[in-house]
Amino acid sequence: MADPRAFISFDFDHNETEKTLFVGQSKNSKTPFSIQDWSAKSSMPQSKWEAIVEEKIKKCNMVIVLVGKYMASATGVKKEIKMAKNNNVPVFGVYVGGANTTSNLPDGLSRTRVVKWEWDKIAEMIDKMMGEGKNK
């Protein structure tokens, strides 16, 4: 089987650096998944963005949310989580940018589904996600 495809959801205003590092490190980790970098490259109307992102999420096996300190203001992340759930795509989070178990989580993401940025923990969550949702 090909490596699972992961859509990365992150707070563009606060965690773009962490997203770049996460994607880069994933290529050198032994964690078996591929990341689809489908970030919007230009500004577009909200309805067009939503349609494009939802189609991209549907093509993935899971959504990985990079949970930073300012998740409460990340409205796009909340929408991406909702899109994933509406399409039966499992979601989990990874703490980044100094966020931890006391940080705010976006709506729809349970604290029990968020792990530290440690590749063995991320690999465990990927295995778990592959047993859920449309992947079963």
Rank of each mutant, 00 (worst) to 15 (best):
R111S: 15
G93Q: 00
K19V: 02
E118L: 11
E118P: 00
Q36P: 01
V23P: 04
L66Q: 03
E132I: 00
P45K: 08
A40T: 12
W38F: 13
P45R: 09
Y95F: 15
N104R: 06
M1S: 15
I35E: 06
V91F: 07
K58L: 04
W49K: 06
T102N: 15
W117T: 03
D120A: 10
K48R: 14
T101D: 14
A74T: 01
L21R: 12
L21Q: 15
Q46W: 12
M44E: 10
V23I: 15
N86W: 03
E50C: 11
S9I: 04
K136R: 08
W49Q: 07
S34W: 13
G131I: 06
E16F: 13
K79T: 13
T102F: 11
T102G: 11
D120G: 05
E132C: 05
R111T: 10
M130E: 03
L105Q: 01
E54M: 11
S110F: 03
G76I: 05
I122N: 05
F7A: 01
V67Y: 03
A2S: 11
N61L: 02
E80Q: 02
L109E: 06
S47Y: 14
T101K: 13
M130V: 00
A6R: 02
T17M: 07
T17S: 12
I81V: 07
E132Y: 13
M71C: 07
E54C: 05
A74I: 00
A6D: 00
E18K: 00
E16W: 09
K58V: 09
K116V: 08
K116I: 09
E54S: 08
I122S: 03
K56Q: 15
G131C: 08
S110M: 12
K78R: 15
M62H: 08
F22G: 03
A72S: 13
G68A: 02
E54K: 11
M130H: 02
P106I: 04
G93P: 02
C60W: 04
S47T: 09
T20F: 09
W38G: 11
S26A: 14
